[in-house]
Write a protein that binds this DNA or RNA. Structure first.
Length: 501
RNA sequence: GCGCUGAUAGUGUAAUGGCUAACACCUGAGCCUUCCAAGCUCAAAAUUCGGGUUCGAAUCCCGAUCGGCGCACCA
C-alpha cells in the first residue's frame, strides 16, 4: 500500500517541489532543498502572509543575520534553556534530563549547576537509572543551537539563531525611533532558523534548518485589552480548544466576546487569533473542521509565555492535528532580558509613563505550512492526481498548449505564452497528447490551462480550462488577461480585517 | 544515542551465488493524432560505500554511511 505521504513525497521530488538537500552526496535528515515549484509555492504563501499580517501602517518586515553573537542568547535564555544536561544509563542506555531528575529526587536546586556538580550530586545521593536501576554515566550538555567559531582565532563564538524572533528585539530601539515612537509597533521576519535536533522525524515536519515567519507586536501593556476593530470582530466565532476542554470530543466554537469576558483573554490577543483564523479559512481555504486553536497549559508552555494558543491543522499524512504556528504573549521577557544583558535602555516614554513594551508573538513554521498545503489540497481522482490549490497559491498560474503540434498551432500558442507571461507565472508545453499535458499540470496544481486549437485560427478564440472541474470555456485571446485576473480576484473573500490579497 | 528494520534507473518493483541486472510508469527524440495519462519506433537511466568469502556477489559475511519506525529529545 502506497501511503498518501509517499505519494506526495514522490510528486514533490519528481516535479520539483522539494528534495533532500545535497542528496547527490548523502541524505541527512532535517535538511531539504526547495525546487522550482516549491520555491514558487513558498513565495506565494509568504506573500499572502505579508499581505495579511502586515496590514497595519506601523507593522513592517525587517531582515537580520542568521548568525548572532553569544551574548544575544545569554540574554534570551537560549544558552541556558536550550542547553539540556543529559545523562545516560550505562546499562539500559535510557537517556533523560539530569537536572530535572536530580531536582525531583533530591529537592536540590539544579538551575545553575555545571555538569560536574551535577555528577557530584548524583554520586552523593547514589542516584540510579529510574528505568532499570543501573549505574549512570557522566552528565553531558546537549545544546540545540549550532555553534560557530568566527574569525581567525576561533575565539569568537557565535550561534546560528534558533528562532527569528530575536531580530525584532535587537532592532527594537532603532526601529522604535525610526518609526517615530508609536505603539503598537509590529516587526516581522521571514527567515531561516536552525536547531540541532537530536533526531528530526516526520520528513518535512521537523527540520534542522527551517523557515519561520514571525511577527512581534510591541505594545503598551495597559492597552492590551484594546483593539480598534473590536466591534467588527466581537461576535466572530473562534475554533478554540481550551485546556479544560481537552477531554471533550467536539470542539465548541466561542465568540470573541465570550473569550474576552469568560476566559479573560485580552482583546489585542484575540484580534490576532481572528486574523490567524481568517488567514487559514478565507485566504488559504482550509476547511473549517480541520483547524483549531489549542490552548497550551502553563506547564506545557515556556515560563515566560503568559498566554499561548497553537494553531493546529488536521493533517491526514501525520495522523491528526499538528502545530503550524504559536501565538505567544511573552510579556516583557525579551526586552527586559536584552536591556539587562546589553545594558542598553529599551524602556520607552509614552503616554506619560516609562515602561518596557510587552510583546505578542505570532510564530509560523513556514515549511510545516507548505506541507499542510500539499496534504490538504492533494486529491486523487479516477484518472489523475491534482493539487486543488486556490489560484493565489498555485505555483504556476497559466499553462498554454497547442492542441496538436501542427498547422501553426504551436506558434500561436507561444505567442500567447509570451504575452501572458508578462503578467502571470506561465508555462508552455507541446509534448505528448493534450490529455497528458493536462495531467502534468494537474499534478503540480496549475490553476488555468489554455489550449490553442483549429478554431483559434478562424476566430482568435482559445479554450480556458479550470483544473478543479476540468470545465472549459471559450474566450477571445484579447480578453484573456482580463478574464484570468477576474478569475483570480473572484476567489478572494478576505476583506474584513486584512488587506485585499 | 539505543532497539528493530531497510538501501537496485527519477518512481515503484524483479532478479535469493551463475547469460549483457529485468519490467512498468515517468522522461527525451520521432511518427501518428481535432480536447483529458491512446498507439507505434527509438533512446537515456540503477545494484549506497569499503573490506571479506568464492572460479563467480545486487544476492552470503564484517564494517561504515544514511533513511524509516519505536524509545528518548522537540526552550
Amino acid at each position: 500500500m502506497v501511503t498518501k505521504t509517499e505519494k506526495i513525497m514522490s510528486i514533490a521530488q519528481k516535479r520539483g517541489f522539494f528534495f533532500p538537500s545535497g542528496e547527490i552526496y548523502s541524505v541527512k535528515a532535517g535538511f531539504w532543498t526547495y525546487g522550482h515549484l516549491g520555491t514558487l509555492l513558498k513565495q506565494r504563501w509568504e506573500n499572502l502572509w505579508r499581505k495579511t499580517f502586515l496590514d497595519n501602517p506601523n507593522y513592517y518586515e525587517i531582515e537580520d543575520t542568521n548568525i548572532l553573537t553569544k551574548e544575544v542568547f545569554e540574554s534570551s535564555g537560549h544558552l541556558k534553556n536550550f542547553n539540556d544536561p543529559l545523562v545516560e544509563c550505562n546499562k539500559c542506555k535510557f537517556r533523560f534530563r539530569a537536572d530535572q531528575y536530580v531536582e525531583d529526587e533530591t529537592g536540590e536546586e539544579t538551575e545553575a549547576l555545571t555538569t560536574s556538580e551535577m555528577d557530584k550530586l548524583i554520586t552523593k545521593h547514589k542516584l540510579k537509572c529510574p528505568e532499570c536501576g543501573g549505574e549512570l554515566g557522566k552528565t553531558q550538555l546537549f545544546n540545540m543551537m549550532f555553534e560557530l567559531k568566527v574569525g581567525a582565532t576561533g575565539k569568537d563564538i557565535m550561534h546560528l539563531r534558533p528562532e527569528t524572533a530575536q531580530a525584532p528585539y535587537l532592532a527594537f530601539k532603532r526601529e522604535f525611533l525610526a518609526l517615530r515612537e508609536k505603539l503598537p509597533m509590529g516587526l516581522a521576519v521571514i527567515g531561516k532558523a536552525f536547531r540541532n535536533e537530536i533526531s528530526p522525524r516526520q520528513g518535512f515536519f521537523r527540520l534542522r534548518e527551517f523557515t519561520q515567519a514571525e511577527l512581534q507586536i510591541f505594545f503598551d501593556p495597559d492597552t492590551i485589552d484594546e483593539t480598534e476593530d473590536w466591534n467588527k470582530i466581537k461576535s466572530y466565532k473562534l475554533r478554540t480548544l481550551l485546556v479544560k476542554e481537552r477531554s471533550s470530543k467536539t470542539l465548541k466554537e466561542k465568540t470573541c466576546e465570550q473569550l474576552n469576558k469568560t476566559e479573560k483573554i485580552p482583546k489585542l490577543y484575540i484580534s490576532q487569533m481572528v486574523k490567524i483564523q481568517k488567514f487559514y479559512l478565507d485566504v488559504l481555504d482550509i476547511p473549517k473542521e480541520k483547524i483549531r486553536f489549542k490552548e497550551i497549559s502553563e506547564k506545557e508552555r515556556a515560563f515566560y509565555n503568559r498566554i499561548q494558543f497553537d494553531m493546529e491543522i488536521d493533517l491526514e499524512t501525520l495522523g491528526g492535528f499538528r502545530e503550524v504556528l504559536g501565538l505567544h504573549y511573552r510579556g516583557d521577557h525579551d526586552l527586559s532580558g536584552h536591556q539587562k544583558g546589553s545594558k542598553t535602555k529599551l524602556e520607552v516614554f509614552l503616554n506619560n509613563k516609562r515602561f518596557i513594551p510587552h510583546v505578542i508573538e505570532l510564530s509560523f513554521g513556514v515549511d510545516r505550512n507548505i506541507w499542510n498545503l500539499l496534504d490538504n489540497f492533494f486529491k486523487e481522482e479516477k484518472n489523475r492526481t491534482l493539487f486543488t490549490f486556490p489560484h493565489s497559491l498555485s505555483p504556476i498560474d497559466v499553462a498554454i498548449f497547442p492542441l496538436i503540434r501542427k498547422n501553426n498551432l504551436p506558434e500561436v500558442a507561444k505567442k500567447i505564452f509570451n504575452d501572458l507571461n508578462q503578467d502571470f507565472n506561465c508555462t508552455y508545453d507541446e509534448t505528448g497528447s493534450i490529455g497528458r499535458m493536462y495531467r502534468r499540470m494537474d499534478e503540480i496544481g496549475c490553476s488555468t490551462m489554455i489550449t490553442v486549437d483549429h478554431q483559434t485560427l478562424k476566430d482568435k478564440s482559445v479554450t480556458l480550462r479550470d483544473k478543479n472541474t476540468m470545465k472549459q470555456t471559450r474566450i477571445k485571446i484579447e480578453k484573456l488577461k482580463e478574464k484570468i485576473k477576474k478569475l483570480f480576484n473572484d476567489e478572494i473573500k478576505f476583506e474584513e480585517t486584512g488587506k485585499k490579497v
